[in-house]
Deep mutational scan, measured.
Amino acid sequence: TGEEYIAVGDFTAQQVGDLTFKKGEILLVIEKKPDGWWIAKDAKGNEGLVPRTYLEPYS
């Protein structure tokens, strides 16, 4: 389980392990790392690192 967040901007993977997403996408945050990069999963089940500055809590 995780917390749902909504993307407030588009993000394109910079390196292997990053997750590309579009503004408005709902992501499930699995782990919040202290460096500001969180592990998240998208609706298709893809998992990767995302920058927390692009996310806001979804309710």
Results as ranks from 00 to 15, higher is better:
T1F: 12
T1K: 12
T1R: 06
T1M: 13
G2Q: 11
G2I: 13
G2F: 14
G2Y: 14
G2E: 09
E3C: 08
E3D: 08
E4A: 15
E4L: 15
E4R: 14
Y5R: 02
Y5W: 13
Y5S: 01
I6Y: 06
I6V: 10
I6S: 04
I6M: 10
I6E: 04
A7G: 05
A7V: 03
A7C: 07
A7F: 02
V8S: 07
V8R: 14
V8G: 04
V8I: 15
G9E: 15
G9L: 15
G9S: 14
G9D: 13
D10S: 12
D10N: 11
D10H: 07
F11M: 04
F11G: 02
T12R: 08
T12P: 05
T12F: 12
T12L: 12
A13H: 04
A13N: 04
Q14F: 10
Q14R: 15
Q14I: 13
Q14E: 09
Q14V: 13
Q15H: 12
Q15M: 12
Q15K: 15
Q15E: 10
V16I: 12
V16Q: 11
V16R: 13
V16K: 15
V16G: 10
G17E: 05
G17L: 04
G17R: 06
D18G: 15
D18R: 15
D18P: 04
L19R: 01
L19Q: 01
L19C: 02
L19F: 03
L19I: 06
T20D: 07
T20S: 15
T20E: 08
T20C: 05
F21N: 00
F21C: 04
F21M: 05
F21H: 01
F21V: 08
K22N: 08
K22S: 10
K22C: 06
K22G: 06
K23H: 07
K23Y: 08
K23Q: 08
G24M: 03
G24P: 01
G24N: 07
E25T: 09
E25V: 06
E25P: 00
I26Q: 03
L27S: 00
L28W: 14
L28V: 11
L28H: 10
L28I: 11
L28P: 00
V29D: 00
V29I: 15
V29P: 01
V29N: 00
I30D: 02
I30F: 12
E31D: 12
E31C: 09
E31G: 08
E31I: 13
E31A: 11
E31W: 12
K32L: 04
K32N: 03
K33H: 11
K33V: 07
K33T: 10
K33M: 08
K33E: 04
K33N: 11
K33W: 09
K33D: 07
P34G: 13
P34C: 10
P34N: 12
P34V: 13
D35V: 04
D35Q: 05
D35M: 05
G36S: 05
G36W: 04
G36A: 05
G36N: 07
G36F: 05
W37P: 03
W37R: 08
W38E: 00
W38M: 04
W38N: 01
W38C: 03
I39R: 14
I39D: 02
I39P: 02
I39Y: 12
A40V: 09
A40L: 03
A40Q: 00
K41W: 08
K41C: 07
D42A: 03
D42L: 03
A43L: 11
A43T: 12
A43M: 13
A43P: 08
A43S: 14
A43D: 13
A43R: 11
K44N: 11
K44S: 13
K44Q: 15
K44G: 10
G45E: 05
G45D: 06
G45K: 04
N46P: 01
N46H: 09
N46G: 08
N46D: 08
N46S: 08
N46K: 09
N46L: 10
G48M: 02
G48N: 01
L49G: 07
L49M: 08
L49F: 12
L49A: 09
V50T: 03
V50E: 00
V50C: 06
V50M: 02
V50P: 00
V50F: 01
V50W: 00
P51T: 04
P51L: 13
P51C: 12
P51Y: 15
R52P: 15
T53Q: 11
T53K: 12
Y54D: 04
Y54V: 10
Y54E: 06
Y54K: 12
Y54H: 14
Y54R: 08
Y54Q: 09
Y54L: 15
L55E: 00
L55K: 01
L55N: 00
L55T: 01
L55D: 00
L55G: 00
L55A: 01
E56R: 15
E56V: 14
E56I: 15
E56F: 11
E56G: 05
P57E: 08
P57I: 09
Y58V: 09
Y58H: 10
Y58D: 04
Y58L: 10
Y58E: 04
S59Q: 13
S59R: 13
S59C: 13
S59P: 07
S59M: 10
